[in-house]
């Protein structure tokens, strides 16, 4: 097998995956508690349907599907970056506690506001949007992880550290909940339940811009990620200024995770699972191939999860985090078993 052949294989694969994603996007718009035939949905899209149908399609289902796509891309890309950065096949924003850090940021914003009220701290918190608060919290956890994991040789120790930091963030959130007022508590609890449908159009724009920028930056860092696969020392021996590159990677991953979490709540296991599915399908380790395929897979998987969570035929829907966990956890278990066999 030679380079052009490999390249063609990945391109063909990406095109097929992109087509599948588009198909899933259309299906996600069509599926919901109110049955709307495709022809009606299309007329709603072009503005030729009565307002209540157009409201469901254009006002609710289309933005929700767009959010699913963007969040799928964001979490998958940052999951792949973290797996390589921490040289740990089980790293992802959720497992390493970065999502919990984002949660703490949001908790401080929502509940801290009522605690500090009129003080300068309260004014500062009120001035920060959900996204900024979540990114700040995510960055705090990521910095601690990077600082401590540099001294840890064992990959399991890094995971345990992530779980500990996540628990610490949760404990702080509990303390905040205990002291905060009812209204603030309620709006925080609603946020933790997550959901792809509660995103305003302004938030959708922010999410879209961040996902686009983050994905572009991730593609720019493909060479660095390939070099880091062989460890930090090796990367330095082929001329990389690892500290600088790693900070850049960390900022990208934090930005992607923080924004997605801010608008949709913590969404688990997508970030850890999709890069592995990409590796298994492509049988490649090169990030120049893995990154685009992981992005497309993330989008497709998240759209699928959104459709499952809508529970077609029922009045209610499942929380998105439940669906992603049930789909992602078997993949994580598979990865652990394969690693045991290889080691």
């Amino acid at each position: 097998m030679h380079a052009p052949q490999r390249h063609n294989k990945v391109v063909a694969f990406s095109v097929a995956l992109a087509a599948l994603t588009l198909l899933l996007l259309a299906a996600d718009v069509l599926i919901g508690s109110a049955p709307i035939p495709p022809a009606t949905a299309w007329r709603a899209l072009v503005g030729a349907e009565p307002s209540h149908v157009s409201h469901i399609i254009v006002g609710y289902r289309l933005p929700k599907a767009a959010v699913a796509l963007l969040v799928g891309v964001s979490l998958s890309v940052s999951g792949l970056q973290m797996q390589t950065m921490f040289r740990n096949p089980l790293a992802d924003p959720y497992i390493l506690g970065v999502s919990s850090g984002a949660g703490l940021g949001v908790a401080l914003l929502v509940m801290g506001r009522s605690l500090w009220g009129a003080t300068p701290v309260g004014a500062l918190l009120a001035g920060m949007g959900y996204a900024a608060a979540a990114c700040a919290g995510a960055a705090a956890v990521m910095l601690i992880m990077l600082a401590i994991s540099a001294r840890l040789r064992d990959i399991m120790a890094v995971l345990i550290l992530g779980v500990m930091l996540g628990s610490a963030a949760s404990a702080l959130i509990s303390a905040l909940q205990y002291f905060s007022r009812e209204a603030a508590l309620k709006s925080y609890v609603l946020w933790t339940m997550g959901g792809l449908g509660n995103v305003t159009s302004a938030q959708l724009c922010v999410l879209g811009a961040v996902t686009l920028a983050g994905s572009a930056l991730a593609l720019l860092s493909a060479k660095t990620l390939n070099a880091l696969m062989q460890g930090e020392r090796y990367a330095r021996s082929i001329g990389y200024r690892v500290g600088r590159r790693r900070l850049f990677l960390m900022l990208t991953a934090t930005m992607l995770t923080g924004t997605a979490t801010a608008f949709c709540g913590p969404v688990g296991f997508i970030g850890v699972a999709t890069p592995h599915v990409a590796r298994m399908l492509l049988r490649e380790a090169d990030h120049r191939y893995l990154l685009p395929v992981t992005m497309l897979l993330g989008a497709a998987v998240m759209l699928l999860c959104d459709m499952i969570s809508a529970l077609p035929g029922y009045e209610t829907s499942l929380p998105i985090n439940t669906v992603t966990s049930l789909l992602g956890i078997p993949i994580v278990i598979l990865v652990i078993m394969r690693n045991q066999k290889a080691g």
Binding site: K223, Y234, I238, G239
Partner: peptide
């Protein structure tokens, strides 16, 4: 180095081509 980093699905060719990284462009 003595580090033996095992990465799944990494081709021998790709492993050796990491040595060319000081000479390639931003995308490698």
């Amino acid at each position: 180095s003595t580090d033996n980093v095992k990465v799944g699905n990494l081709k021998v060719f790709d492993l050796v081509s990491l040595g060319r990284y000081p000479y390639t462009g931003w995308f490698g």
